[in-house]
Amino acid sequence: MSLAQPALKIEPAGVMPPVTEAVFKRPHVTIRGLSKRFNKTVIYDKFDLDIPRGKLISVFGPNGCGKSTLINMIAGLIPPDEGQILFDGMLLDEIKFGYVFQNYREALFPWLRAFDNIAYPLKMMGIGKAERQARVERLVERLGVKIDLNRYPYVMSGGQQQLVSIMRALVVEPEILFLDEPFSALDYEMTLFMREQLQRIFVETGTTTVLVSHDLEEAVYLADRVLLLSRHPALVADFVTYDAPRPRTDATLSDADFVQIKAHCLEVFQREVRKG
């Protein structure tokens, strides 16, 4: 299977590439021996994974296989039972990261205007008001966001609220961005629009991004790598590379390459579902 890549791609120890390249190629996140169980169910058992730097990783797998659990453990929302997760050899609390929840309604603070919602993590970092303002404005500028951020989240559309959530995650200039099914509560039109927004943001910032998606087309369309998980305990069923150039467009969806990779992912997925 030419598309498949081993989950653990350990760099050959002997050859030392030039330093800059080495830094670029070194995985961003290394997960080793990760185990997690809920009551009696083993969700992860000695799970290993390397997340490459500056790539958008889609996580796809059967319902309840542990996609959310995985990114929540990486993002420190739930503690693993065992194992180690390192970011460039550092622990989570030494790095800056962003997390976007599926449920934007409950993730944003309704008592703050959108602008202050976005600035909130900067406040937590102890950054002064003027600087916070400047940074949010810079982000708005860079992303070309056109919505009125002086409004409260509850008067905004779902897509606008989720965009605010994403901006709140990005404002700290995170080294890594996690999104757990960020568009699944939006209607189809909004979902398509938000995919483009996310792609633009990714192209713009180049932030390592981990996106959980339950939509295979979306997962492949946005991804550099698609992580296919198996069920109970979750293993890497495949870690597919998709390197079509960006920006991808609607035409990408009918490219032979895209169609082939999507078909391959579907095949792996169905194999895993049948096993379960």
Binding site: Y99, F101, P121, R168
Partner: peptide, 29 residues
């Protein structure tokens, strides 16, 4: 208080006291 909101504050680096004053208090209003 909405659990997601508390988690959101936590991942943004809010301390326990901050979570109480910035989120729980307002959530309970």
């Amino acid at each position: 208080a909405r659990k997601t909101r508390l988690l959101a504050a936590k991942v943004m680096g809010a301390s326990r006291l901050r979570v109480l004053s910035d989120v729980m208090l307002l959530e309970s209003l």
